Amino acid sequence: MAARILITSDYLHPGDAVDQLLRERGLEPVYSPSQGSRTLDERRSMFDGISGAILASEPVTADMLTAASSLQVIARSGVGYDSIDIQAATAQGIRVCNVPGTNHHSVAELTIGLIIMAARRLPEVTTAVRQGHWPREAGHELRGSTLGIIGYGPSGRATASLGVALGMTVKVSTTHPDRDSTAVQFTDLDTVIRDADYLSLHTRAGQSTGPLIDGPRLQAMKPTAVLINTARGSLVDEEALAKALSDGTIAGAALDVLESEPLPRDSPLRGLDNVLITSHLAGQTSEARTRAGLAAAHAVIDVLENREPAHPVDR
């Protein structure tokens, strides 16, 4: 009987390249697209009879893993894995992998796109034109402004390169600076936050600390600054951000990731004119999806065929 591979990433479908690859290896793909919260019973039975899983960013808890008697490997079809209880997976002997380096260009391009939208006030302008108005307010050039980047993994580096190409001064806070780079200034976190006209997050979520961008750090930003988050929703204190946006502590924000997704009806960010929210799609280009899906499938195949996966996050 063929080993069954659960696929919850909603852009992977029967007949696509991932499906074909798995079937060529004698595996049986099983599709259960992630479309919001699952019921308790659905979570408990999610891995029944499943040997491997290619997952979206939905939560995988210790209770779910304890019941997963046949599960050998989980591969995230993305970079983030903080939604998975790694400790519980390791205790169960379940390997956990991700697929870094598959979507960083997509993330960087959307990051710059969000910055341009904020700088030129494109959401307000396009809405006004649809309503029959013809606004002519001045925006801002990016050239000569300061792009602050927190985190210098693949998406942070790609964003920095685009910022440099646009004539921005790029300042980066990271524990892994590129000492050979002359185009980017590496400095401490407080300096990046203080100096940035556009502050972009490209770092992992902390394991034990609170949000990276909290009330005091928002207060430390320029009143004309814009915060961009395409990394992890947990990096930002959304209540503090909503207050900072409401009282003019900072000028705006562009968020592709949120603490809870989709955006809750009672979120303090709703109704604010100076925040732009997109639906966790920074890495969701056709090209990146193909790369990520195939990389996740190869990780599952490697573990099931007793090879070390390329990008384990559990060891």
Rank of each mutant, 00 (worst) to 15 (best):
P123I: 08
L304V: 04
P14W: 06
G26Q: 04
Y198N: 03
R217I: 12
D82L: 01
E24R: 12
A297M: 08
R25W: 10
L147T: 04
R76W: 09
A231G: 13
E239V: 14
P177K: 08
Q207K: 13
A68P: 10
G26R: 05
P154L: 07
V226M: 08
I50H: 05
R204P: 00
L255S: 03
T175R: 14
I213T: 01
T169D: 14
D214T: 11
W134T: 06
H280Y: 11
A244I: 09
D63W: 09
T209L: 01
A297C: 10
Y11K: 10
L212W: 04
V300T: 04
S83L: 01
G163M: 04
K243Y: 00
V107S: 02
G148M: 09
H176I: 09
M117H: 02
I301H: 05
T8K: 04
L110N: 02
Y198D: 02
A62L: 01
A220M: 11
Q87M: 03
Q284Y: 09
V107D: 00
Q72N: 13
A297L: 08
H104L: 00
E141C: 06
A240Q: 06
S181K: 11
P33V: 13
Q35V: 15
P216S: 05
V226A: 07
L201F: 01
A67D: 07
P268W: 08
I7E: 11
S208T: 14
V18N: 06
T174H: 08
L201P: 00
V170K: 00
T39D: 11
D85T: 00
A183K: 10
G252A: 11
Q131S: 12
Q72C: 13
E287I: 14
P264Y: 08
K243M: 01
I5N: 03
D178N: 14
T169E: 14
K243S: 04
T159H: 04
G132C: 08
S106P: 03
Q131A: 14
T127F: 00
S260N: 12
A165Q: 11
P154N: 15
S77I: 03
V96E: 12
P177E: 11
G283A: 13
V18C: 05
L294K: 12
A183R: 10
G283L: 08
D273S: 15
G78F: 05
D41M: 10
V300Y: 06
T230K: 01
R121V: 02
P59Y: 09
A128P: 07
Y81G: 05
L241D: 03
V164I: 13
T126L: 09
V18S: 05
L227P: 11
